[in-house]
Computed example of a mutant assay.
Amino acid sequence: MSLAAQDAAKIPEEIEWTWEVRPAHADAKLPNVLLLGDSITRNYFPEVTQDLTGVANVYLMASSTCVGDPRIEHQIAEFATMEGVRFQVVHFNNGMHGWGYSEAQYKAAFPAFMRTVRALTLESSTLIWASTTPVRIDKEVGPTNARVDERNKIALALITSAKISLDDQHALMMEHRDLYKDDIHFNDAGSKIQGDQAAAQIRAALSMNRLPKAQAR
């Protein structure tokens, strides 16, 4: 079977989900920011929202769908149609789900994923890739740190080539391995640390976007 044919196959998890949040009262004078990821992103989304109060309208799209699953581009496009806004910054991650997909499939599908994310933005917008965080304990069927590392390596090469910024959430949380609340997710203190770093990078990107073009180069 060809890699393209393999990529077209759906390998669903036992529980599939999406979680979308929009600002209750978006301010038309503020830029729009999107956090795109999974339940880890969902956990630090409130801290990012708090940190960027008065700075940006912060949206969330979290999903269990993995790069390699043909549904993900459709889900993101549907979200974009529903919200009807363009984002000045998209902070995005994908890599903790879809362990039925090989890393070869993940690599083959990642460029299309980036193009779909890029379609959410304005011409002057910034993309920020968040590396996938380490797990506390390797799972025999599921995430292992070796596979997380490989997916991060694949993603880093592709985002570097595409000149996309990196928020190294993996390196950050390697320094806080005492803050897990389960084998994958971090507790409130850990999520706050993650959210603060994500918000700082988003704030910096928004500041650069507001500079005149000659200064922003």
Rank of each mutant, 00 (worst) to 15 (best):
R136D: 07
V117Y: 12
E13S: 14
D183N: 15
A130E: 08
A204K: 07
H91M: 01
A199I: 03
Q197N: 11
A5N: 15
A28C: 01
D27V: 01
P46R: 02
L30V: 02
A199D: 06
A9E: 15
D183A: 12
A189I: 13
N187L: 13
I184Y: 02
R118F: 06
I128M: 06
F79C: 05
A62K: 03
P12W: 01
D182S: 09
A56P: 05
A109P: 02
I202H: 14
P111S: 04
A28T: 06
N93D: 09
S125L: 04
L122S: 10
H74M: 08
L60M: 04
A104R: 10
T49V: 06
A5K: 14
K192Q: 14
P134L: 13
R42S: 13
P212V: 12
V85S: 01
D188P: 01
A104C: 02
M96Q: 10
L34W: 09
F87L: 05
R115E: 13
A8T: 09
S64N: 09
S125F: 03
Q88I: 00
A28E: 02
H25E: 15
R177M: 12
D149K: 09
N187S: 12
I202F: 09
A119T: 14
D138E: 04
D51Q: 14
F110S: 10
D168C: 07
I137P: 00
H170L: 03
P143V: 00
N93V: 07
R217C: 05
E13V: 05
P31L: 00
R177F: 00
D38S: 14
Q50P: 00
N94G: 13
Y101G: 10
A155W: 00
D188I: 09
T18P: 02
I76V: 15
L179F: 05
E13P: 02
L172G: 11
D178Q: 11
V67I: 10
A204M: 07
L120G: 13
V58S: 05
A205P: 11
A130G: 15
M174G: 15
E123L: 08
M114D: 04
K153V: 00
L3V: 10
I15K: 15
P143K: 00
N32H: 11
L36H: 01
P70N: 12
N32R: 03
E14G: 10
S124D: 14
L166Q: 10
T81R: 09
G68H: 02
Q201G: 08
R22M: 04
E20G: 05
E16N: 14
H176Y: 11
L122E: 14
W129H: 12
C66N: 09
E47D: 11
D138C: 06
Q215M: 15
Q197L: 14
I15S: 13
E73N: 06
R22W: 01
R177Q: 15
R136T: 00
A204E: 08
L35G: 12
S165N: 08
V58M: 02
H74F: 05
R86S: 07
A119P: 08
R118C: 12
L122T: 12
G98A: 07
I11S: 01
R22H: 03
S207I: 10
S39I: 07
E20D: 09
V67G: 07
H91Y: 04
L158Q: 14
A198R: 08
K213G: 03
V85A: 06
